[in-house]
Simulated scan of single mutants.
Amino acid sequence: MFAKKNVVAAAALTLVAVAAQAQVTAYGNLDVSVGRKQAVTGYDTNGKAIKASRTAVDSSDLSDSFIGFKGQEDLGGGLKAIFKLESELAVDNGAALGGTSAFWSRNATVGLAGGFGTVNLGRFENLFKLEGAAFNPFGSSRTFSTTFGGTLDLTSGSLAPRESWSNGISYVSPSLGGLTLSAQYSAKEAALGNTALYGGGAVAVAANFVAGPLGLSAVVGELRSTNGVTAPAEKTRPWLLGASYDFGAVKLFGQYGQIKADDKVTGDSGKFKGFQLGASVPVSADGAVLVSYGDSKGTEPGVAGSEKNRDVSLGYTHNLSKRTNVYAAAINERRKDTTAAPVQKATITNFAVGVRHSF
Rank of each mutant, 00 (worst) to 15 (best):
V172H: 03
V205C: 02
A249S: 09
G201A: 09
P232G: 07
T236Y: 03
E189C: 00
E222W: 00
Y198W: 13
S225D: 14
V219M: 03
V219Y: 05
W165G: 13
K251G: 12
R224L: 04
F247I: 08
A191D: 15
S166H: 02
T180Y: 03
E234K: 00
S158M: 06
G242F: 04
G212R: 00
G228V: 02
W165R: 08
Y185T: 13
G221C: 14
S175D: 10
Y245K: 00
T230Q: 12
L159F: 11
A183N: 12
L241V: 05
G150Y: 02
T195K: 14
S173E: 14
A204K: 00
S175F: 00
I169R: 06
A196K: 04
R162D: 15
L154Y: 13
G177F: 13
P238F: 10
D153R: 05
S225R: 04
L176H: 08
A190Y: 09
W165F: 10
G157C: 05
S175T: 09
E189F: 02
V210R: 01
D246L: 06
L154P: 02
S170V: 04
N167C: 07
A202V: 06
L179V: 15
G200C: 05
S170M: 09
G177T: 10
G200A: 07
V220S: 15
S170A: 13
A187M: 13
L214Q: 06
E222H: 00
S166G: 15
L181E: 06
S175L: 01
L192D: 15
A207Y: 04
F209Q: 08
T236W: 04
S225G: 08
A249L: 09
N194F: 06
A211G: 09
L240H: 02
G201Q: 11
L216G: 09
G177M: 08
A191H: 06
D153G: 10
T230V: 11
L181G: 09
L152F: 11
G215T: 00
T195F: 06
N208G: 05
L152I: 10
L192P: 12
A211K: 03
A243L: 02
S170N: 13
A204N: 04
R162H: 11
